[in-house]
Design a protein around this nucleic acid. Structure first.
Lengths: 104, 104
DNA sequence: TGAAAATATGAATACTTGTTCATGTATGAA
DNA sequence: TTCATACATGAACAAGTATTCATATTTTCA
């Protein structure tokens, strides 16, 4: 019997749901959205999104721990950017769905 | 100045995060995964996933309300299937990311 | 070394959400 | 109509999580 692509372990399915969770929060989605345009510092994020700095830092920690974003220090500032090209792809795939739905 | 594709309203970003939330739960991901192979009844889902029927029904309600799945009645049974071709696409896009990460 | 700027972190709180358990509704068969 | 099957739903509880507020780090500059 040929192997089928439907053979996905429960572990992978669990990781998959954990992965999507990171996109399932407005604050994180807005942060990710900003980073689609490139590197950005913590303060810049807070200003552009009108969020407290601690809120941004907390969410960045979650994204950093999950390897969705990566930091780069430059003096006192820390610039964050998307760590993986897939992140933008998934964002846009979801966005396409939303816009497609609204367009009907 | 030319319009840029980065012009996404906060409303859309909110909807986007709400949309990803549906994928951010193990039970729902497992249900969606089953439906990638086609229509399936509530009982069948519960059996295959070793879940209580009420758990499945509750999650199906969430997915149905969000128009991610659609029901089809046949006698006493109700068969559910994915409502939108995007659902499978998003699932697979995320899956690719997970498998790619594990492969390294 | 001392102060300011930029970011991170810890604890507490409030809110959201998934599961459990009991019950309700709908359909088909006798 | 009565019973059994298949599914849905409501309330309560438990667990997870985002935000707030205060404080701690780290770095630069005087």
């Amino acid at each position: 019997m040929k192997s089928t692509k439907a053979d996905i372990s429960m572990d992978v399915l669990f990781e998959l749901s954990e992965f999507f969770k990171f996109f399932g929060d407005t604050t994180r989605i807005r942060i990710i959205h900003l980073m689609l345009s490139g590197e950005i510092s913590v303060n810049e994020i807070a200003e552009k999104l009108s969020l407290e700095q601690s809120v941004v830092s907390h969410q960045l920690r979650i994204l950093r721990t999950a390897n969705l974003v990566k930091p780069r220090r430059e003096g006192r500032k820390i610039f964050y950017s998307l760590d993986d090209e897939h992140i933008g792809l998934i964002f846009n795939t979801g966005l396409t769905h939303i816009l497609h739905k609204k367009g009907k």
